[in-house]
């Protein structure tokens, strides 16, 4: 069973994509519900809002503990929450992955874009997908990938899909496309 953090954002789109990829899903809205799932997706949305709601609901510590033993896949705002360091502006994060992330790094909504990207060999080998349709919406940029991190997809030299151990972070939104190869890759980690 894979959970989708449903505090705010496009969690419904994530759940639908996971179902298309063949997963059993449940929405996670509090710390207790984290106990029922073997992995978690943190969706896109506003990272500042999600942080507030995590604090209001007393979920921050529970999520940190969860990340020590179970896989998490974060997209966009989710990737920001997984990072070790966040800038523009700096804000708190879970620190589950050794990546540094700059928020809204491409600019505002008018700079949002859809790109067809050729993934790294490793991604193709594991998923069979030879291209990835990447939907970037007010997207962050991963400025640094620390030890143990592996770049699976890049755009203009910047990492946009990064794996570190059991965790996965994407600055784009695979849940807003028909292709579920990124979701399959994550489900393989559960």
């Amino acid at each position: 069973m894979v959970g989708v953090l449903a505090l705010q954002g496009d969690f419904a789109a994530h759940e639908a994509a996971l179902v298309r990829a063949g997963a059993n899903t449940r929405l996670v809205r509090n710390a207790d519900e984290l106990g029922d799932v073997g992995g978690l997706v943190i969706p896109g949305g506003e990272s500042t809002t999600m942080l507030k709601l995590l604090h209001y609901g007393g979920m921050m510590d529970a999520l940190r503990r969860f990340s020590e033993t179970k896989p998490i896949f974060g997209t966009c705002a989710g990737a920001i929450l997984l990072a070790e360091k966040v800038c523009n502006p700096s804000q708190e994060s879970l620190g589950a992955m050794a990546i540094s992330v700059e928020r809204n790094a491409y600019g505002r909504q008018n700079e949002s874009r859809i790109c067809s990207l050729v993934p790294e060999e490793e991604f193709i080998r594991r998923t069979g997908a030879e291209k990835v349709e990447a939907v970037f919406i007010r997207a962050p940029v991963i400025r640094k990938v620390g030890q143990g991190g592996r770049v699976l997809v890049a755009y203009n030299g910047d990492p946009v899909l990064v794996e570190q151990g059991m965790h996965l972070a994407a600055t784009f939104h695979p849940e807003l496309t028909d292709d579920v190869s990124v979701q399959r890759l994550f489900l393989g980690k559960l």
Binding site: A6, L7, Q8, G9, D10, F11, A12, A13, G44, G45, E46, T49, C76, A77, Q109, S112, V135, I137, R138, H173, L176
Partner: peptide
Amino acid sequence: VGLAEMLKGG
């Protein structure tokens, strides 16, 4: 529509 999706629940 993608940006509107990100605002859901907010």
